[in-house]
Structures are given as structure tokens and as C-alpha cells.
């Protein structure tokens, strides 16, 4: 058993035991340990990737939300504008209608007034005619009170007819 001379007995035992150690450790220790480590690394990588993906989705969602919000805001603005326009329109239409109605009313009034006026004038004319006939009758009665005068007038009228 020298310091630097290999010993055949030790070689035999060492070979035997080391091969057994290698086989057992390989099958029952290194294989499960290495595969577990690899699996864990993979799962960590996957989780990191899915976390990244989730973050992306979150951002997407946020952007979508923002877009929807912006759209809603726009729609609201539009709606407000439209409403305002509509109210303005209604208001202006009402104004136009009111003025039109007023105009029609005035016109109708005017017509009525005119009719009234013309009928009043007619009435006046009729009254005046009647009055003038009465006056003429009265004048004639006054004038034709005596027979002379009547004869004179008949003569005169006869003369006029002859002339014609």
C-alpha cells in the first residue's frame, strides 16, 4: 500500500461501488432533480410570458376603454349639439310660425275690416239713396203742389222727349 502505487483491491472496490453509485444517482437522483429544475424553469418562463401577455391585454383593455370613453364623449357632444340645433330650429320655426300666424291674423282682420267697411259704405249708400229719394219725393211734392207747376213740368219733359 504505497503512496503512489495503485492497489488492485481498491481499484476493484472503487470501480464496483462507483458504478453502483453512478447508476443509482443517475436513475433516482439526477434525473428527477434535473427534470424538475428544467420543468420549474420552463414554468417560470411560461408564467413570466403569460404575465407579459396579461399586461399587454390589460393595456389593450385600457386603450379600448379609453377609446370607448372618447367615443362616448364624442357622442354626448354630438347629442348636445344636435339637441341645441334642434331646439334652435324648433325655436326659430316657432318664431316663423308665430309671425306667419300673426300676419294671417292681421290680414284676416284687415279683410274683415274691409268687408265691414264696404258693407258700411253700402249701407250708407243705401241710406243716402233712400234719403235722397225721400228728399226728392218731398221736394217733388213741394214743387208739384199746384196743377200749373205739374203741367209746366209735363210740358218741359214732353219737350225734352220731342227733342229726342
Amino acid at each position: 500500500m504505497g503512496l503512489v502505487t495503485p492497489d488492485i483491491g481498491t481499484i476493484f472496490w472503487m470501480l464496483l461501488m462507483f458504478i453502483i453509485l453512478l447508476v443509482i444517482l443517475k436513475k433516482f437522483a439526477w434525473k428527477p432533480i434535473l427534470s424538475a429544475l428544467e420543468n420549474r424553469e420552463k414554468s417560470i418562463e411560461n408564467s413570466l410570458r403569460s404575465a407579459d401577455r396579461a399586461r399587454g391585454e390589460m393595456e389593450q383593455l385600457k386603450a379600448d376603454n379609453e377609446k370607448i370613453m372618447a367615443e362616448a364623449r364624442l357622442e354626448r357632444d354630438n347629442m348636445l349639439k344636435e339637441t341645441k340645433q334642434l331646439s334652435d330650429k324648433i325655436l326659430s320655426e316657432a318664431r316663423i310660425k308665430a309671425s306667419e300666424e300673426a300676419r294671417l291674423l292681421i290680414e284676416a282682420t284687415r279683410e274683415v275690416i274691409a268687408n265691414e267697411k264696404s258693407s258700411a259704405v253700402d249701407e250708407i249708400r243705401k241710406q243716402v239713396a233712400l234719403l235722397s229719394v225721400e228728399i226728392a219725393e218731398k221736394i217733388l211734392r213741394e214743387k208739384l203742389k199746384d196743377v200749373n207747376q205739374q203741367k209746366e213740368l209735363v210740358d218741359k219733359l214732353m219737350k225734352d222727349i220731342k227733342l229726342n
Binding site: M1, D7, I8, G9, T10, F12, W13, M14, M17, F18, I20, L21, I24, L25, F28, A29, W30, P32, I33
Partner: peptide, 27 residues
């Protein structure tokens, strides 16, 4: 042929048992 189970062989055996205990439990 001298295949004696010497001190070093026993020490190797002890270390192998220790290695197996440690790494089988780790596994």
C-alpha cells in the same frame, strides 16, 4: 490477489451512503 475491504473502501462506502441519503432525499 488482495481484494481486502480496506479502510479507504469502507470510507468510500460511507461517503456513498451519505451521497445517496442526501441526493435521494433531495430528489
Amino acid at each position: 490477489l488482495d481484494l481486502s475491504f480496506t479502510k479507504n473502501v469502507l470510507a468510500i462506502l460511507i461517503s456513498i451512503i451519505l451521497l445517496l441519503l442526501v441526493f435521494l432525499s433531495v430528489a
